[in-house]
Nucleic acid binder design. Sequence first.
DNA 1: CGTGTTCTTGAACCACTTCAAGGCCCGTGG
DNA 2: CCACGGGCCTTGAAGTGGTTCAAGAACACG
Lengths: 239, 239
Amino acid sequence: MQGLARHPIDLPHEVCSGCAVRSISLCAALETEELKLLDAISAQVHFGEKQTIARQDDPAGWVFNITGGMVRLYRLLADGRRQIIGFLLPGDFLGLALSERHAFCADAVDPVTACRFSRTDFSCLVGSKPRLLQRLHEVAMHELALAQDHIVLLGRQTAGERVAAFLVQLRDRRSRHGAAGHLHLPLPMTRADIADYLGLTLETVSRTISRLARENLLLVVPGGVRLLDPDAIEALSLA
Amino acid sequence: MQGLARHPIDLPHEVCSGCAVRSISLCAALETEELKLLDAISAQVHFGEKQTIARQDDPAGWVFNITGGMVRLYRLLADGRRQIIGFLLPGDFLGLALSERHAFCADAVDPVTACRFSRTDFSCLVGSKPRLLQRLHEVAMHELALAQDHIVLLGRQTAGERVAAFLVQLRDRRSRHGAAGHLHLPLPMTRADIADYLGLTLETVSRTISRLARENLLLVVPGGVRLLDPDAIEALSLA
DNA sequence: CGTGTTCTTGAACCACTTCAAGGCCCGTGG
DNA sequence: CCACGGGCCTTGAAGTGGTTCAAGAACACG
């Protein structure tokens, strides 16, 4: 829109105000003052496909607000088994716990852009601005609710239910970014990633998606799927 | 100690200061002033074995700080499948999310005592006392970390690893209550409960515990187990 | 001392995994 | 431009860890 006209020099406090994901991220519902403070300690960063963003047990120097692309969060067991904890989309926050060490690995599924903060700076700011702490807590509680949903999925749902739930969840999360009603669902992660998220093997994920395709509930297209019958898939996801 | 001498009438603000679980619960590290405010809106309550404390999707009128006994948190699927999200011990908080509706069911495994607050009162207090919000957030982040550990367990660990991890986790949590080094581990919940927590069947849990007993790592005793080789069980839990 | 609940154990079964092979897509270099 | 190589995905066939079904043992409680 009027973007080009105003950045001969990109003033730091201009970044947040023009941020595409502000309305759905941690920074939503913050006062201008707090936004400026956040802005002052933030930096825009990029990560290439497969690039590491954080490594399990390493000291956590930074926290991030994802603004573009997709991030894979995972824990590795000693023998190489991997469990993906979640996928982050634009608007999601990486490092909520503000703990001194990362509880998991994070890397870029596809090219990622993010808003980076020093963990200690961010932590201090949170300590001095109750409004920001409040917002952080809201986001954290949302995260906890998602984790508990995932526990139910992993503990008690079948392969078919898991895959259906995954597709529905991803569609719903994308719909927050103005992709509402979109039937094309990009799946930038591999089948192995989906499997490690759903507690299955990549073959089971592939077979399950094939079955959904055979039943005309979706169409497998390059880079994702097209949902032909989202309601039927949603129905499969929790019963 | 001097308890009997001072409660001809049990003044509300006397309760917290004498609370056995204060040091390990939400109320830890709160100032005397905040403690008094909490105290003023709290009430002591009891629940008998199997009594319902909260029902999934019902409006949440109360939140609780558990002071005695054990609480079972679970989600039910439409067809009766059950996933236990967690077991609460003394010092744990029920209703962290402060959401308007309960995200899960809660009932008493054995007789439970708790400190009850009106959700709205508690919520208001949290909104006006950043220190309390801070503490709530800490507790919530701990909860999130536990949930993520559980995701790894459910997604990628074998039955043997799950049961071992369960026993170790329970022992560690009990050790916070001065039960450190105790080899006797009470298991007030049924095998079916353990199974629904670990994403297994009760038969698998029973067989797995029997196997640990056969290998002399533990002894099955009425109401629980005696850990004969806690280190070996711990080693089983994550490899 | 019976009755119901929980726990254990055995045997058959099955959903998902494992192992294996071939196909597709895409970037790269000849 | 096309042949080659390497991911990634799909599909088949065999294998297995955990489930399901079933029956009896231990225990708890009136």
